[in-house]
Write a protein that binds this DNA or RNA. Structure first.
Lengths: 154, 154
DNA sequence: GTGCGTGCAAAGTCTTTGCAAACCG
DNA sequence: CGGTTTGCAAAGACTTTGCACGCAC
């Protein structure tokens, strides 16, 4: 999905729900479009946003993140580090990318593999559960940490 | 794994690491063996433990949960409700059960399906990442909530 | 203009920590 | 006995909320 599209999707969804298309909300979403960081915490977003417009408060960032999540523009993630993280909810890729979390250095790498179709029917049949989304996290050790560990041995 | 085995595993691991096998730690682990609740928060555990021994403090519960997680007796879970939850880390089943989280009522159901073998090699090859564990959560609507929604329609 | 949205600070929730006393080994 | 572990209370980290002002529509 192109960046311009994301912003106009926001505008559209905001209108639909009769919310207001405010400067602050624009800037918060823009932070996700501009940043290379894929998994930002509220604080991360606040720092970026604060440069653009120092008047914006942290509470507004939290409120925007919550709103955008409810509008399905963002996805809320948890990597177990005590704070929520958010990523653009690009539906065309969301259902096929997962997170590899390194237990050594904490680095988070993305991994693509769509296996939802494999299980969706099974879960539907066995549990009567209607899946609308899923989150998959892998824990392990990344290339670098494995290398480091090996160097320390030898 | 039998209940008795879990407690003796604790004893063994405690010894190995030269920690102490205290009454409090026994009681905290026992809470998991006795409770029918599969996914307890620190507060849940505290309530149970507190009945057995009102002197035990919440901080001790937190410290025990952390210790047991590091000893791989428990697994720390996150269902996005703002608190950590814990379950017994029964290795024979852990790698094949996942959580179905109902977006309607918040109920968490378990679902068995071991697909780790399918992806482990792939991840190893493509990312050089050595997987030691994974967590999979499905979000959707449970039988009851689907029924309720249908009733409201008709 | 009206009412939703914002900024600030205060409050809330969950979790961690400092310290003296208690206890395991 | 000595060093861990505990209980308590206080502090810490993240997030939410109350309220008066400001801005989008």
């Amino acid at each position: 999905m192109k960046k311009a599209t994301v912003m106009s999707t926001l505008k559209k969804k905001i209108k639909e729900h009769q919310y207001k298309f405010t400067t602050q909300r624009k800037i918060v979403l823009q932070a996700f479009l501009d940043s290379k960081e894929n998994h930002m915490s509220a604080e991360d977003v606040y720092e970026i946003v604060h440069e653009e417009n120092p008047a914006i408060g942290l509470a507004t960032v939290y409120r925007s993140l919550e709103l955008f999540t409810s509008l399905e523009l963002l996805k809320k993630l948890d990597f177990g580090d005590g704070r929520s993280r958010y990523e653009l909810n690009d539906k065309t890729i969301t259902h096929s990318h997962h997170h590899l979390i390194c237990l050594g250095c904490g680095k988070v790498v993305e991994f693509s593999y769509d296996f939802l179709n494999d299980v969706k029917d099974k879960i539907q049949k066995e549990n009567g559960f209607n899946i609308v989304d899923y989150q998959l996290k892998f824990y392990g050790y990344c290339k670098d940490c494995i290398k480091k560990a090996n160097n320390n041995k030898g």
